[in-house]
Amino acid sequence: MKKYHVSTTINGEPVEFLCEPQQTLLDVLRDTLNLTGSKEGCASGDCGACTVIVDGRMVCSCLMLGVEAEGRTVTTVEGIATGDTLHPVQQKFLEHAALQCGFCTPGFIVAAKALLDENPNPTEEEARYWLAGNLCRCTGYDKIIRAVLDAASEMRREAAE
């Protein structure tokens, strides 16, 4: 099958790749670019394990074609930390034991970052509805929500300093 040439920016780096027209962005990230942090849990946009940020917007990378990444800026879970410094959401996930198996965690980390970029002071209910597109089967969400709210308050504290 004929492949298309795509130029994009992923986690701050210019990236070019070739992809078949039916390949999703998730296929490209995982199988072509070896960015396996984004997970495939359903391939239908129901579980959120493949969540990435495209031009500032949270999307399921399984619902976007690779060719649609042309000219766009993509952030995956691999691009959330700054060098060795974890993003507050990542740090709080660790401190609150907000993961068990850790498979849904990349999607939650990206989705939570997107939430806090848009709303630095979410209520518990707002956090629960924002993250309702990310399925976790291990934790019952309790510690995830606590981690996200704690990260939000830490980021507000940091911003105020």
Binding site: R30, T36, V77, E78, L86, L94, E95, L99
Partner: peptide, 19 residues
Amino acid sequence: PIRPDGVDKVTGRANFGAD
């Protein structure tokens, strides 16, 4: 304490079955 496999799991480095 923070779990020993935690950082790999919040940064996308942990290798699951399909990885």
